[in-house]
Design a protein around this nucleic acid. Structure first.
Lengths: 352, 352
DNA sequence: TGGGCGACTGATAACGCTATCATAGAGACG
DNA sequence: CGTCTCTATGATAGCGTTATCAGTCGCCCA
């Protein structure tokens, strides 16, 4: 009965609600958008009518009327699928609430030409704001181009604040520091570290956190540092190097989960049990961390939450821009957490 | 110079174009939408103006005016991240072209209540169509609910045509048949198979393909069939069983890539080299297939392409519905391909 | 007690597009 | 040569929302 008014017909409009609640459509709009100058009784009546008719605002009309046509551009290179899908889900969730549109642009990594093209497409393509994810936000040329085009943008997941544009990120260095402390607390004193791709500022930040923790907490520990590139393949190579020497680490800290997974794989191939013979920890807590066995101890970077915040920030900036206000870039640092799973354990000197 | 008319101001509208081309906005609309009753000369003039002003139609206004408010609902359970992101990218790409909106709804797997809620949210939430992905499209209750609500919907990636709703899928059985033939062609005669989650029709279809190929091509071959659930974890368990017996398969066909990855992992832990000692093949060709080492030989299911087709089909149905036409459900079967990578090799009876 | 000030509500006019119908020519045909 | 048909184009009227401004109260303070 409640939804009787539809059934094959058109959806309920603000006017229908208004009629039912005996107010004007304008008041309905106010209630629905949570504006304050509405008396409690009116609000109640409207809300009741809204429920009665299962009213939901027409987003097209909404964005048309408010002259907001917030189309958000999201160029993406080829990050791990896990990262991308978590980001997309977060972004879409938040955009959906606002009635904004998402424009995806594929962007071959590294190929300068492709980046150019993607950017051109974005900036000419009527997007009102851009979300820059992992490797893209660290590219000076891309950030430059965007600043020049005067398009609001938010950088997601960079290793440090670049200035100019707003950022949403975690404190990579502190997170790596914390994780390193955790490893030391477990008693490990021979520790391997696999760095991330040098084209992303998160990589040096994480490495710096690792170094800093060792320097502060266990200057006598022995360390091995291998270059990685955030890919599984590169993790394999690095792990092979770390585990092939006579003297090998008892714990390996990889700069992301994909590489940590590779370490686990190499360890297994070499007959090492994780975590009994080798502690392996990752970074990011993407889905691969729990897909693996043993599940990875890792740093949780709340990607979805960060995406949501980034969208909010971006929309806010788009609105500000529209009103001619110049907004100063924000640097939003989201808290990280350590997630302890089965891939780490207290050091036991068994294999000698 | 071409884009001079913007620069901080508003985007060009159809009216601007009309003025420049000395026609009416209506004619601009016609040209832009490729209607036919427009003289060649007029069309030329308009197109020139469009280029000059870098005009792009305002999608909000467009959908408002044409009373199309195509919001597409996409409930998602927890498929692998790779699958989800590929689907999302395909869907968004295609929807973006049309100015439709995507509404994501999280939907805890299995929990009936959550499904209910998600569906209610979708159907009350003004979506004009629904895209059902992997496990959801196989749920009779969900499909039923949707048919009852008379909302256009397309089922993506089911193992067979359920009738009632339109489907976009590959021929899972034939694909598994083809892959099995490939394994046999490599000389293997002791073959393990890991099934998928029984709640998805793709699982029995793939198993059937495997059985059929063996029956047709090598009735004397020895086979082992283990139950899996499409997850890495379940792959581990199944692989452990397959590889722990005295007599073990020389090739294992997993019903998806995640489980194949698990097989590789177990093999390595047991000191088996892939592919020298064991051939491992997967299904789907999601990103994990190339993330692994060795890269997986697998069946390529063109997820992105399928998503695009599903969206097209859905929009078409939404339009038909709007015009009161009853469209008959389509069963679109997309061709699959076999991708041969490094995880499969000719059978060599070394370890005896 | 009257002027003024808030708090609340409503009327009106966009927003940028397309559906629809009207109109103006250009041929076609008897 | 008048009417009839058909094509190309334009005028008009919304689509469902929100911005803006104009009230209408009730209440406070002088």
């Amino acid at each position: 009965m409640a939804r009787a008014s539809r059934r094959g017909g058109k959806a309920a409009t603000a006017e229908d609600v208004a009629r039912l609640a005996r107010v004007s459509p304008m008041t309905v709009s106010r209630v629905v958008n949570g504006e304050k100058n509405v008396s409690a009784s009116t609000r109640e009546a409207v809300l009741a009518a809204v429920r009665e008719l299962a009213y939901a605002p027409n987003l097209a009309a909404k964005s048309l009327a408010s002259a907001e046509q917030p189309r958000v551009g999201l160029p993406f290179a080829n990050p791990s699928a896990a990262y991308l899908s978590e980001t997309l889900v977060g972004v879409l969730d938040q955009l959906g609430r606002t009635g904004a549109q998402l424009v995806l642009v594929r962007c071959e990594a590294g190929v300068a030409n492709s980046e150019r093209q993607a950017m051109r497409q974005l900036l000419q393509g009527q997007v009102s704001g851009v979300l820059l994810t992992a490797p893209l936000g660290d590219s000076d040329s891309i950030r430059h181009e965007i600043e020049e085009a005067q398009v609001p943008a938010v950088v997601l997941g960079a290793g440090r604040f670049h200035g100019g544009l707003s950022h949403v990120r975690i404190d990579d260095q502190q997170a790596a520091y914390d994780m390193t402390r955790k490893i030391l607390d477990l008693g490990h004193r021979r520790i391997g570290f696999i760095t991330g791709h040098p084209n992303q500022t998160a990589s040096p930040a994480r490495a710096a956190g690792f170094e800093a923790a060792l320097h502060d907490l266990a200057p006598d520990a022995k360390t091995w540092v291998e270059q990685g590139y955030f890919t599984y393949q590169s993790g394999l190579v690095a792990a092979e190097r770390l585990l092939s020497g006579r003297d090998r680490p008892s714990a390996i800290f990889a700069s992301n989960d994909d590489m940590a997974a590779a370490v686990v794989s190499v360890a297994h191939r070499r007959g090492l049990d994780v975590p009994r013979d080798l502690t392996v920890v990752g970074f990011d807590d993407t889905s691969i961390a729990t897909t693996l066995w043993p599940e990875l101890t890792t740093v949780r970077q709340p990607i979805g939450e960060m995406a949501v915040e980034a969208v909010n920030l971006l929309l806010q900036q788009i609105r500000a821009r529209r009103d001619g206000v110049v907004s100063r870039p924000t640097d939003l640092v989201i808290p990280h957490t350590l997630v302890e799973r089965q891939s780490s354990a207290i050091f036991r000197d068994i294999k000698r």
